[in-house]
């Protein structure tokens, strides 16, 4: 197995985390998804140069790394906003009005699912099911799950992110 075939794309300290993840798995090809998780944890999204770096070090063709990165919904190739609002669209949330929440956000802020507001303040994301079905509809604000949300609750929180200047 190659040891450090290529140098990290920059001297950003976060690359050390990526190197550690690859080393932990012995630079084995099967660690690709684990390593991509490490990259996304560290950088927030998967940059092209990160994908190339990982491909080089795991001796995988870049096409395969790109193929895996785009196959899984959890990975994102675009930077996310400062805040993330994830609307759960699982069955229980759906029948209890998750769709209305998304519509209202779209009307109010002009940001659709998978999009980020122009100033980069927040991203609107949807999840298949966050497993909080008993609290439907559930919304995840920056990693914190909140249950029984109404469109008004969600808009209020997003407005707080904007510092009430909308």
């Amino acid at each position: 197995m190659p040891l450090k075939k290529t140098q990290p794309p920059s001297d950003d300290k976060r690359w050390k985390l990526i190197n550690a993840a690859m080393r932990r798995h012995g630079y084995h090809r099967s660690a690709l998804i684990e390593v991509l998780h490490a990259v996304q944890d560290a950088f927030g999204f998967l940059e092209d140069e990160a994908l190339e770096y990982v491909a080089d070090n795991l001796t995988l063709p870049p096409s395969m790394v790109y193929g895996v990165a785009t196959f899984y919904h959890f990975f994102t190739l675009k930077p996310k906003g400062e805040h993330a609002c994830v609307i759960c669209t699982g069955t229980a949330c759906y029948i209890k009005g998750a769709g209305d929440i998304i519509d209202e956000i779209q009307d109010k802020f002009g940001v659709g699912p998978g999009e980020t507001s122009q100033d980069g303040k927040f991203s609107l994301l949807t999840a298949r099911c966050v497993g909080a079905c008993s609290l439907a509809p559930a919304v995840v604000y920056d990693g914190e799950v909140a249950g029984h949300q109404t469109p008004e609750d969600v808009i209020k929180t997003i407005q707080e992110w904007f510092g009430n200047d909308t």
Binding site: E34, M64, F75
Partner: peptide, 25 residues
């Protein structure tokens, strides 16, 4: 532990194994 990455089809056993091996599920 191997983390999934948001693909429903990976609950199917052969897709799950592909994912553990680091491939598209």
């Amino acid at each position: 532990i191997r983390l999934g990455a948001g693909a429903f089809v990976c609950g199917e056993e052969t897709a799950l194994m592909a994912s553990i091996e680091g491939r598209r599920g």
